[in-house]
Amino acid sequence: MFTGQQIAFIGGGNMTEALVSGLLKTGQVAPAQIIATDIRPERLEYLARSFSIRVSSDNARAVSGAHMIVLSVEPQILDEVLRGLTPSLDPDVLIVSVAAGYPLSRLNRVLARTGRSVRAMPNTPSIVGRGATALALSPDLSPQDIARATALFESVGSVTVVEERLMDAVTGLSGSGPAYVFLIIEALADGGVKAGLPRPVAAALAAQTVLGAATMVLETGLHPAELKDRVASPGGTTIAGLHALEQGGLRAALMSAVEAAAERSTELGCEPPSR
């Protein structure tokens, strides 16, 4: 898939670390095929030491000769980063952007090019190989381009291809969703402590409960409502707890959280270029 190809990661943060680790663990590339950039010398030192990859503080130098470029920087600074890359880009390079809310049309406009680009929204569980990534594809990608982009993110979890118009909704759900789940785990653990459990026990039970419930949804294929009903026996403890959650507005709060994050993703894509 990546034989003889060079991959440049612009931005050396957590997502770059996850993807580099995934590619190396799955044996798809050798360390010498990867270069990563960052403005922080200590981060570059960490990546080089941890993965034996090449590192640089010079974005333009890093992308020269690359077959795939992964843009892993904040959307607020991506315009500036792209303008610095333009003189060094090979016209046939495949560009993959993980910047939230940043549309392909804007990417191509800033780079003064068309096509061969992918917009991706991975999430933080990619760090532990359990990510959920959605891809939006430019129409002129080759089958090999699509296969390479898919393989990149399958190295850290599952991949779904969606129309680009749905990417802001993806951002609000799976992109931001881990934070919502962390909050739920914390709240469940706090409830356990309130009921008398030691905090380490409560935290472990809460996390494993969420993991187990999610696995049941994925592996059984059953609707979450059906699985919920299987737990809630008539007049029992679970239905009493569910009633309390409904009174507290948990369902509406989570729906509003997804909607708010999706709206912010749209705003980020519409903000004027950085100066």
Rank of each mutant, 00 (worst) to 15 (best):
M68K: 02
A62F: 06
A99V: 08
G65D: 12
R43F: 00
V98Q: 03
Y46V: 03
Y102I: 04
N59D: 11
V98W: 01
S72H: 02
R49W: 05
L82W: 00
R83K: 15
L44G: 07
P103G: 10
Q76H: 13
S88I: 10
F51D: 08
V98N: 01
V98G: 01
I95S: 04
I77C: 08
I39Y: 01
L89V: 04
D58V: 03
R83W: 08
I35F: 01
N59K: 01
S72T: 08
S72R: 00
N59W: 00
R40M: 06
G65E: 12
V55P: 02
T86M: 11
E80P: 02
Q76Y: 10
Q33V: 11
I69Q: 04
L94A: 07
V93L: 08
L78V: 13
A36D: 04
V63I: 14
L85K: 03
G84Y: 00
V55H: 05
V93G: 04
A60G: 15
S64V: 06
R40E: 11
V96A: 08
F51E: 09
A66S: 12
I77G: 06
R54M: 10
M68T: 15
R49I: 01
P41W: 11
Y102V: 06
G84L: 01
V70F: 14
A30C: 11
A66Y: 04
N59H: 03
E80V: 14
L78W: 05
L94H: 07
E80S: 15
L47F: 08
